[in-house]
């Protein structure tokens, strides 16, 4: 394999005394779709900003396309399309003016941008709003515009920090579809998310972060295989009885996790486990068998749930 597109070693970011990103290593290959998964404050956005050459790392090495963002910030950013976690649209301008001026910041010619605008408006489904001031858009519309805007320079690396927060389910699926097509065209995707389904759908490979550190790294399927069982049985006994049932259930499952409102029992075959519990005369108020997800991986790695 050729040299990785993004190459990080010992990447660290501190704010005062606080270590937000704690010496992480990773590589992203060209055309790959790479995810950062982690709870609030894990350091995902901080890492994204450093890669985006808009925040200076405290220590460690980082190269993007073989260049150091601290030395060649403008050159690196010319390759990037950035969707920050918080929209930073120009609220004083209209929807199409936002796309236009953003393209101008890259130095693109007016004729190029003006050809691009209808296409991006269609992408964001904002054709009817093109002359409306951004202030007057709904939250989801702003989000879509931010994403469309990031594409004006035809970037070959697209960085999406929680792209689908605030989008309705339909808009989310449309976005996934579009991102998929960009990936097919060879665009490298960097995505942070709290949503398991999103990570599983979009990412070839992801790292699980917590408190600035990498807990695990692999493809979603492999992570589930490595850190969880095939299936999970969720049972509830009501908040008073959950605790006393734990000791009874523990020997029956491969692994057990106790959450405030429910107990998770890990097993290769959930239905079979449920039957063996029933055979012991234990009858939970509710029960549910499902496939393991990244959520379970995360719980295993950090002892915490991803979405609190």
């Amino acid at each position: 394999m050729s040299e990785p597109l993004i190459h990080a070693r010992g990447l660290t970011k501190t704010y005062g005394d606080f270590v937000a990103v704690d010496g992480i290593d990773f590589d992203v290959a060209k055309g790959e779709s790479f995810g950062f998964l982690g709870p609030n404050g894990a350091g995902k956005s901080s890492t994204m900003r450093i890669i985006g050459a808009t925040s200076v790392r405290t220590s460690g090495t980082l190269t993007i396309l073989g260049k150091d963002p601290e030395v060649n910030g403008p050159q690196i950013r010319a390759h990037l399309g950035v969707v920050p976690q918080q929209d930073n649209l120009d609220v004083e301008l209209t929807v199409s003016e936002n796309i236009f001026i953003y393209g101008r910041y890259f130095g693109l010619s007016s004729s190029f941008i003006n050809k691009k605008i209808p296409e991006l408006l269609e992408f964001a489904q904002l054709e009817e709003k093109k002359d409306v001031k951004v202030q007057a858009l709904s939250g989801g519309m702003k989000r879509r515009l931010t994403i469309a805007r990031s594409l004006v320079s035809e970037p070959d690396i697209l960085m999406l920090d929680e792209p689908t927060t605030g989008l309705d389910p339909q808009a989310r699926h449309i976005l996934w579809d579009r991102l998929f097509r960009l990936k097919e065209q060879g665009v490298t995707l960097l995505i942070t998310t709290h949503y398991m389904d999103e990570a599983e759908q979009l990412c070839d490979r992801l790292i699980v972060m917590d408190k600035g550190k990498i807990m695990a790294e692999n493809s979603p399927a492999q992570l589930i295989k490595d850190y969880s069982t095939k299936e999970v049985l969720e049972v509830r006994f009501g908040s008073d009885r959950n605790q006393e049932m734990v000791e009874v259930l523990r020997p029956l499952a491969e692994r057990i996790e106790v959450l405030p409102d429910r107990i998770l029992l890990y097993a290769e075959d959930g239905e079979q486990l449920l039957e063996s519990i029933a055979a012991k005369g234990i009858h939970p108020n509710t029960s549910l068998v499902r496939r393991s997800s990244l959520e379970d991986v995360f719980l295993r790695l950090t002892g915490r749930t991803l979405v609190e």
């Binding site: 985006g52 808009t54 403008p74 050159q75 950013r77 010319a78 990037l80 950035v82 920050p84 918080q86 930073n88 649209l89 120009d90 609220v91 953003y102 910041y105 890259f106 130095g107 320079s153």
Partner: peptide
């Protein structure tokens, strides 16, 4: 307004 964040995310 984080306008500069947007500007600096480009090659400016």
């Amino acid at each position: 307004s984080r306008l500069y964040n947007a500007m600096l995310a480009t090659s400016l």
